[in-house]
Simulated scan of single mutants.
Amino acid sequence: MTTEHGGHAAPANATQYIQHHLSHLQSGEGTAAINLDTFWVSALLGLVFLGIFSLAARRATSGVPGRLQNFVEWIMELVNDTVNSAFHAKSAVIAPLAITIFVWVWLMNAMDFLPVDFLPRVLEFFGVYKLRVVPTADVNHTFGMSIGVLLCIIGFSIKAKGVGGWGKELFTAPFHAHGVAAIFLAPVNFIFQMLELLAKPISLSLRLFGNMYAGELIFILIALLPWWAQWLLGGPWAIFHILIVTLQAFVFMALTVVYLSLAVEKH
């Protein structure tokens, strides 16, 4: 049995409640479906990131910095330290890319801190009855980001080694051989290179998705408990989740930098 809210059938039991909160607001059907909630939330958070950092840049001063400037500079120092320790080539792109990844992924992860029913209830007044607010809990989004990283890996490799050098490496590493042995080992090398190349985006996407999906599901389960149990369990879990949200954003950024560093090294 279901109850009606604004002409829409609301979840009547725990199973329907969980299924409802794990359903995306979609456009289209089947493989052509687009998760509109993932798209718009991630896009808006990207604009939030640009807005905050643009504001900090405009207000930057060589004198006594304000809180916003201190905060942004702290993030940039954290990311720059990671880049300097992991990326040993010269690139004007790597640091801005790393900062963008870290802050954007953190903002998307942090949407998990909003009460489970808050935004869905708000959007019900506008006729929207499905909404998932954590883009990184959508495997389509995390895999899309990892494909972007894959394209960066290929681009960095070609820029550092040239098309010929990168193509040669695909058939000569990791088993370097000469003469006839090199010809026989070329297919094996190519297979290993493809496996390594494809494993990077898959591991990036599934690691982030798995952690954030699990966190989202736990918050949904806590929301099913009585109010006193929600405060008792939700508070400690939210505090612990701050570490998970930050750690997963840092890991995605750090691994991206490591993969790009490996891409420009000659093997």
Rank of each mutant, 00 (worst) to 15 (best):
N84W: 05
I75F: 11
V134M: 03
R121Y: 04
T246Q: 10
Q69C: 05
T3Y: 09
S85R: 07
N140C: 07
L224Q: 13
E196P: 03
L150H: 01
V133G: 01
F113G: 08
S261I: 05
A199D: 12
N189E: 10
A263W: 01
H178T: 15
P187F: 10
L78I: 09
I94C: 01
V257N: 02
N13L: 06
L206C: 11
G63M: 09
A92V: 12
M1A: 13
S27Q: 10
L150R: 02
Q230C: 09
M108E: 15
G167E: 06
G155I: 14
N35I: 01
G51F: 02
A177G: 03
C152L: 15
S23M: 09
H88M: 10
H176N: 14
F219T: 07
A173Y: 13
V188E: 06
A33G: 01
M76E: 15
P65F: 02
V251L: 14
H267T: 13
G63S: 12
L150G: 05
K266I: 14
W104G: 05
F156I: 05
G127Q: 02
D112V: 15
V72L: 03
P187S: 07
P226Q: 00
T31D: 11
K200F: 07
L247V: 13
G6W: 06
G28T: 10
R132K: 03
H20K: 07
L107K: 04
D117I: 12
W227M: 13
L55N: 02
V72R: 01
L255P: 07
W104F: 07
P120H: 01
L36V: 05
T15G: 13
A137W: 00
F49V: 14
F252N: 06
A60K: 13
W40T: 01
L36N: 00
P115T: 10
T31C: 06
A249K: 06
R132M: 00
A14V: 09
V64L: 11
K90D: 14
T31V: 11
S261N: 15
P11L: 04
L233P: 04
P187D: 12
T3K: 08
I222M: 05
F252Q: 09
R207T: 14
A238I: 14
M1F: 10
C152V: 08
H141Y: 14
L151I: 13
T61A: 10
A254H: 15
W104V: 11
G127L: 00
I220K: 00
V41H: 00
W104C: 04
Y213D: 11
E196K: 13
I239R: 06
I191A: 13
S42A: 08
Q69R: 04
S205G: 15
L233F: 08
V180D: 12
N109W: 03
P65S: 06
L123C: 02
F87W: 03
L225H: 04
